[in-house]
């Protein structure tokens, strides 16, 4: 591991200036559960590590009429232990509560999960399904990016040198909506997704028809994927096995996985179809309350 300076700024602007100074030889540190593993594996030679956990703005978690705001450094356990989030955003909870075990969850956050940009990031598909937006600050000011556009490749994001994620903003879910995320792993926990599927559905007031849906996939492409066609196909369709099966099949088509030690192309595409069906059913159940 290359020796690095540890910096703990108290404001976003301080953080931005340190990051800008070192360019790609500095990185923000949230929970550190990806960063430290990679630094020790010599993935990078870092000169500075910028701890964001002393910046109040990045550690705040708030939920109100407009929606949910998750600071970039907030650990998963604070998210899934929050009563209102449990009630209103079950899909977020599904993701946040399976990242690692309890020790990991007390450090690891959704912000770090998003910035780490692993195709398998378990926190990301539900954020995409809920139409979440990433708030970014940098030397040239602030900007916002839809979560589905945030990752640009494995371990690569839209962030430029000097930029950092400040929070993730998730709109308030519409009435009669529900969401869910699951992944397939060979073991029961402490594992990495062979395929993951997050869905959001909005039904009509009777719960018989889809108003809209969003389906997002993990581990079946270079980044988490918004399966736009699959989700859109459900708008206006009756809630039945046929609609679900055809959306699942479209989700399968949206997957572009590779064969590796974790699974083959066929297995992963097959899993996307199976899991999409299962998650749509679960989200429907949640939407109907």
């Amino acid at each position: 591991m290359h020796p690095f300076a540890y910096v703990a700024p108290k404001t976003v602007s301080e953080a931005v200036s340190v990051l800008a100074e070192h360019g790609d030889r500095a990185r923000p540190l949230a929970g550190g559960t990806d960063l430290l593993v990679k630094a020790r594996a010599n993935v990078w030679d870092l000169d500075a590590v910028v701890d964001v956990k002393n910046i109040p703005e990045l550690m705040s978690l708030s939920i109100n009429g407009a929606g949910l705001s998750i600071g970039a450094g907030v650990p998963c356990c604070q998210v899934y232990e929050h009563k209102d989030i449990q009630e209103q955003y079950p899909g977020i909870i599904d993701g946040a509560s399976i990242i690692g075990g309890i020790q990991i969850q007390s450090r690891a956050g959704l912000g770090g999960n998003l910035c780490n940009a692993a195709p398998s990031g378990d926190g990301i598909p539900a954020l995409i399904a809920y139409s979440a937006v990433a708030k970014i600050s940098g030397p040239n000011g602030n900007r916002e990016v839809a979560v589905e556009d945030f990752a640009t490749g494995p371990s690569r994001t839209v962030l430029e040198n000097g930029e950092l994620l400040t929070s993730i903003e998730i709109p308030k879910p519409a009435a009669n909506s529900g969401a869910a995320y699951t992944r397939f792993i060979p073991r029961n926990e402490m594992d990495i997704a062979v395929a993951g599927v997050g869905v959001f559905v909005q039904l009509d007031s009777e719960g018989k028809k889809f108003e809209s849906a969003r389906i997002a996939l993990a581990s079946v492409g270079p980044t988490p994927i918004l399966a736009q066609k699959a989700g859109d196909s459900l708008a206006g369709k009756p809630v039945n096995d046929e609609s679900i099966a055809s959306a699942a099949s479209l989700a399968k088509d949206a997957a572009s996985p590779i064969t590796d030690m974790r699974g083959t192309v066929d297995q992963r595409k097959h899993l996307v179809e199976v899991l999409t069906g299962r998650m749509l059913n679960q989200a429907i159940e949640r939407a109907r309350g």
Partner: peptide, 15 residues
């Protein structure tokens, strides 16, 4: 390809 405990899957107590 899988020279870590992440991808060399030994069962945990949950399995």
């Amino acid at each position: 390809a899988n020279s870590s405990f992440l991808d060399y899957r030994m069962p945990t107590s949950l399995d």
